[in-house]
Computed example of a mutant assay.
Amino acid sequence: MFIRAYLRASTQEQNAERAKASLIQFAEQHGQRIAAFYTENVSGATLHRPELMRLIAESGEGDIVLVEQIDRLARLKQQDWDTLKQKLAAKRLAIVSPELPTSWLALDKKDDTGFTDSILQAVNSMMLDMLAAVARKDYEDRRRRQNQGINKARSEGKYQGRQPDLKRRQHIASLLRTGHSYSEIQDILGCSRHLIASVAKEQKQSDAA
């Protein structure tokens, strides 16, 4: 059994070091050590996560996926959540989180004797589904409130539109200049091809000037 920690931040500016230290401490409290870390900066509402897919691909049967919070995995639409669960189930990977005590059993291999373990796995699966639904609803509620705020600002003539993420655009430009492909940049930054194409177009215009 290997423990593989998955760390996700929704923007490039967020730092995963705090979460990493927290998970290391949690594992040590249970007499365990984390074998590998997978970190990416990508929205929790999408299943397009190269590092998460790499984690699953590199995992052996029965490994553990350790996350600080369930919503690091589960802020997905129901269809995407079902797809992710199928990928995890295909290798019998267990999701463990400090915020979900029923998941901690996976860290203790003393109880390999069947019935109790099966019951707790069933309870844990139910809890995961419930937390996934809560995470998705929280995400949708925040998006709805955000849109309401934008519409109100528009009606009052105060809305200036979404401002460009200059730091991310600079990072994309740097990767383009060093010969990285669109797909490689997507994997590194978790950004859209549309944004990469926009930066590439600006580069061409600037070079031609």
Rank of each mutant, 00 (worst) to 15 (best):
H48W: 02
A21T: 14
D82R: 04
A74R: 09
M126R: 07
R162T: 14
Q29I: 01
K20Q: 06
L84C: 03
R75D: 05
L76V: 05
H171Q: 10
P101I: 01
Y182L: 03
R193C: 00
H180Y: 03
A132S: 14
Y38I: 05
K204F: 00
R143P: 00
M126Q: 10
P50Q: 10
D112E: 13
K87W: 09
D71H: 11
K85P: 01
I196D: 01
R162K: 14
R49A: 11
F37D: 00
K77I: 12
S22A: 14
M127Q: 14
I64H: 05
E140N: 12
E51N: 15
L88T: 05
E13H: 02
K158A: 03
K87F: 10
Q25D: 11
D112V: 07
K158Y: 06
T46V: 05
T178E: 11
V65E: 08
L166S: 09
N41K: 12
D187G: 04
K204M: 00
S43P: 09
V67M: 04
I119C: 11
Y38K: 15
K110D: 11
K137L: 07
Q79E: 09
H171Y: 13
L105D: 14
R8T: 13
A9L: 07
F26I: 04
D71C: 06
L175N: 07
M53D: 09
A200T: 04
I119K: 09
R75A: 10
Q146W: 10
N151D: 12
A197V: 01
F115A: 14
L55Y: 15
G157H: 05
Q203E: 01
A173W: 08
D71Q: 05
D187R: 05
A35I: 07
H48E: 02
N15K: 10
A200P: 00
V67R: 09
E28Q: 15
V123T: 12
R49H: 13
Q78P: 07
K201Q: 02
I56M: 07
F26N: 09
Q148L: 03
A19V: 00
G157T: 06
A106Y: 13
R193A: 04
E61L: 05
A74Q: 08
E140D: 15
H48N: 11
A74I: 06
M130G: 02
R193E: 02
Y6I: 00
V65S: 06
R4V: 02
Y182G: 04
L7G: 11
R145K: 12
L73C: 12
R142H: 04
A9R: 10
N124Q: 11
I24A: 08
A27P: 07
A36L: 00
R92Y: 11
D117N: 12
M126A: 13
R145M: 01
A94G: 06
D129H: 15
P164T: 15
G157W: 01
L52M: 06
N151V: 11
I188A: 06
D108P: 05
G31P: 08
R177W: 00
L120F: 10
R136F: 14
Q186T: 09
S103H: 03
L100R: 05
R162F: 10
A16K: 06
R154I: 12
S155P: 13
A36E: 14
S22G: 07
D141T: 12
